[in-house]
Write a protein that binds this DNA or RNA. Structure first.
Lengths: 154, 154
DNA sequence: TTGTGTATTGTTAACCTTTCGCATCAAAAC
DNA sequence: GTTTTGATGCGAAAGGTTAACAATACACAA
């Protein structure tokens, strides 16, 4: 997506930030893998394929930058790694937040859309006066593939 | 709650685990603070008030144990600390899972109950074949106290 | 283009939470 | 009381992430 790359350059420029090959390369690693939840180390490995001279610290610094620009989303599964994916807004028509289904057996992560939280957030605002800005929903369980595999074994 | 302590002893015994002062002390630190979300370091500090000889490793080992026995719940806010609280089942009548409201300004954590996810989980099972076992919902925003404080300043 | 100022980078070390290894200790069983 | 075996405490190590700092390269103006 060359247009996405141009948008990124504009975004950097308008924020007084410099356009560097490293920043473009890192954003592209994530852009080219929508729905993938990459750790910093994985991003580092992918970027090194094209830019072997890049440093791990630059990956971390750029991740932080992209996160602040809302170009990527953070996902913490509590397994010791923080994961990142290109923001849904970048590659989908609607800008709905999506939630995550995490399989306890194979570790795969599935996304699904649902706006059921919007009702809830309105209710919370009314009853508690708490104004929700963002949310994170993680559902843990067993995916269809693993359930099917297990029933075959029996 | 002496009965809770006796229940804990029975639970340890029936699992072939030894009853130690350290384990009881750590559970009590959490039991005495329902709704508080303590880091391992904080638990360590509280336990040391009564048992100065205790080691940090024991705190971590006991936290793991209590977590496996479902006596405490884990909460990861992504701020570099894993937090723990006594399981709602231990001090509330109903055994409903509760969710967390996290204030982005003061950092306070509020709990709320809602079973809206049960419908959703049934829907996910039907449409995707994914069987949800557990869930974690975190809502980030601004709490009433902080909103009020800000409006006073203006 | 070329030069200059400044943000960015790469390297390495430091940080911080959590886990491991192992000798010692104490709870449970005999 | 003795034995057995799991639990503890200490210190070191692990592992992901951040900081320090000199070197580099981008942006901008001449």
């Amino acid at each position: 997506m060359p247009s996405s790359r141009e948008q990124f350059k504009v975004l950097l420029r308008t924020n007084g930030l410099k356009i560097t090959n490293q920043r473009i390369a890192i954003l592209e690693v994530l852009s080219n893998r929508p729905g993938k939840h990459l750790t910093a180390e994985e991003i580092y490995e992918y970027v090194r394929e094209e830019h072997p001279e890049i440093g791990l610290a630059t990956v971390y610094r750029t991740i932080l930058l992209l996160s602040e620009l809302n170009l990527i989303d953070k996902l913490n599964l509590g397994d010791g790694y923080v994961r990142y994916e290109i923001s849904a807004k970048r590659h989908e028509e609607n800008s709905h937040h999506h939630h995550h289904l995490i399989c306890l057996e194979c570790g795969n992560i599935y996304a699904f859309q649902d706006d059921l939280l919007e009702n809830l957030e309105a209710k919370i605002k009314d009853t508690l006066g708490f104004e929700v800005m963002d949310h994170e929903v993680k559902l843990y369980g067993h995916c269809k593939k693993c359930i099917d595999k297990k029933s075959e074994e029996i």
